[in-house]
Design a protein around this nucleic acid. Structure first.
Lengths: 236, 236
DNA sequence: ACCTGAACACCGTTCAAGT
DNA sequence: ACCTGAACACCGTTCAAGT
């Protein structure tokens, strides 16, 4: 190799440092970008989108960030931390709607954006089985309950409907993400065949086309369910 | 040790086998119980109850069954299989109610048992993010939709309410299990303090006591939410 | 303060071999 | 048919050490 390691020049006979052109920069400047928690989280979301929950490895994540696996542990204490941060992060992608005069419309756009974010990142719903106290998640819940208060709900009734809406969104996202997560595009059709094969045991489900694809859009079914909930609250 | 290994007797000078009293049984009879898929699943549920999802290891599971880790792979092809089987198994614990004249009562007892099973095994809701096509799960969904058909629902309306109920149960179990799963009993109180500390950002949530413990029972809130849904269907 | 390197105690899964 | 043993290619996390 013709290229000589410049550090050799720094140890000159006369003790003076070599001219700057011949020196490589010191280590802390050579690093392209400093590692931050934020960079870790965005890289994690990227990796999760591509490879799913099991694909997110501290080692793979570090590789993507051009860093030693153990370097991550300076910014984060555990792999679960990364997952928690990733979940909260994706809720920051969808902006909070502006509160308008129609509280029902507010709840609709809020929950639809909420659900859309989870379906864009199908690994997310399965990770909700842990305390969700990130700022983005709480901000969304706050907005939801504020809209319900404007609708006139109070006390226990308010608590019931808040949980009803939130849990419906989460459950819907979880079951819908199931089918997008599997790589096999024919998985749903296969499930449908399994159901038909056992039609004797599941007469109602087969008759109603419970697992049929595209009979009605998932989006439409979700919104209609939501509207059914909102119809139980006092009129606008 | 006084106890002599009986196999030594089998190699007698005269070549004849030792009397049966002095022989140990051959290997295939000595094993206490043969390994079956069913035994694996019940042991898995036990281990999951004790140690959670991360605690279920093929090696630990094998140890509990007094078997080599690799022996499991004869009855099951992957760890995920074990998890799928475990989830379906716990739904078999709750018997299907008998269909009565009051379809609302049927749906209530079905979903309450459904939810109770998940709360008894708090690891379960988080595992629903995979195709749920086990016989017990499907039988429950079949019962639910059959009750809704008896209520007079058809077509798209039937699909909407089926999903609404099922997703509400799943979402509720998932969020509620979150707090039972954490070993720390004060986790909820800690979360509440976190909320109060940022009361400026979450005025509605703090005012309504969103994370307050025991203000209203979770069971009561769940049933009221369910009744709100069922109220949207045609009257009995 | 921030990152590297080596090391520890695990994993799931395969495959040939035993009985 | 059913299980063992050895082996492979990974894991998350720690800790001392470098800069």
């Amino acid at each position: 190799m013709l290229r000589v390691d410049a550090t050799e020049f720094s140890g000159r006979p006369d003790g003076r440092p070599a001219p700057i052109w011949l020196r490589t920069e010191p280590a802390r400047n050579r690093r392209t970008t400093p590692l931050t928690r934020e960079r870790i989280v965005t890289a994690a979301v990227d990796l999760l989108d591509r490879t799913g929950v099991d694909g997110l490895t501290m080692r793979r994540l570090a590789e993507r960030l051009a860093v030693t696996p153990t370097a991550l542990y300076w910014h984060v204490t555990t792999r679960d931390d990364v997952l928690d941060l990733a979940v909260d992060h994706i809720f920051g992608e969808v902006p909070l709607p502006a509160a308008g005069p129609d509280w029902r419309a507010d709840v609709r756009t809020l929950t639809c954006g909420w659900r859309a974010a989870m379906l864009r990142h199908p690994w997310a719903p399965g990770l909700i089985g842990r305390p969700m106290l990130g700022p983005h998640v709480l901000a969304r819940t706050e907005f939801l309950q504020a809209a319900l208060v404007r609708a006139g709900l109070t006390g226990r009734h308010l608590a019931v409907v808040t949980r009803l809406v939130a849990n419906y969104v989460i459950g819907a996202a979880l079951t819908e993400a199931t089918w997008r997560q599997t790589d096999d595009p024919g998985a749903r059709a296969e499930a449908r065949r399994h159901l038909v094969a056992n039609a004797a045991a599941y007469p109602t489900l087969t008759a109603s086309g419970h697992l049929d694809d595209g009979r009605w859009s998932d989006d439409d079914l979700f919104v209609r369910g939501l509207d059914a909930i909102l119809a139980t609250a006092p009129g606008s």
